[in-house]
Amino acid sequence: MLFIDRPGWLHKLHPFTKLVLLLLSAALAYLTGLSIGSLSLLLAACLLLIISGGIFSVSAKMVIRIFLPLILFMVPIHGLLNPANTTEIFSFHGIVFYREGLFFALKTLMQLGVVISASLAFVFTTHPADLITAVSHASGSISIGYLLGFPLLLLESMRERVVTIQNAQRARGLEIDGNIFRRFTSLGPLLFPLLIGSIVGIEQRSIALEVRGFKIHGPKTSLRLVPDSLLQKLSRRLMLTLAVILPMLHFFR
């Protein structure tokens, strides 16, 4: 889980407010034809958001993890090979970098930077349980909350089961190394108990849910409260409107 339990003002916002903010920044970065200059302003705004939200150090680590490989591939591939390349910038031992490709790489990286930092501002400050509660509440359906929450609860025990199955089959002489053909044939004995076992067990689980009133319609009570406010509701409306109108203005200009 990426959530960081370190209360800041972003943590206090309703999950939907942060999601709409993410949507708006994605729309601005990709759909309004911003110049490099305006993109840097937008990026700076995202940075401000992250710093003021108290999640700068974790976000920086994540950004490096995501962007290092992207930069390593993006800059040389577009700088050298982008089909639009015509203007030489510099050459190094006969390898020529071009302006158009580098410009394209820079712009793409900045657009991604906006979207990813806005996403991080959401995931680092939103507890999955709060998101699930908000979604269930808004949709009036408990199923969607179950679909989002149950996998998180089950993940650890399923991971342990993978290890147990591997142990059980190795104890019966299954080799998990060797040549690639052999390793492919070992896939069945490792996957089948996991997949078939879990699917066969579904019947039991669904009965367990139904006897506890899972499918009953009507309002459900929740132990978790996700605070919202009129100001947030209004700003969500505003941001949504902007996210639709600004791209349209750009396209029809």
């Binding site: 199955i165 059980a168 089959q169 104890a171 019966r172 069945g188 004995p189 108990p193 078939i196 076992g197």
Partner: peptide, 11 residues
């Protein structure tokens, strides 16, 4: 070695 749960091995 036989593990506890038969469903962890039946393939």
């Amino acid at each position: 070695l036989l593990f506890q749960n038969p469903d962890d091995q039946i393939c």
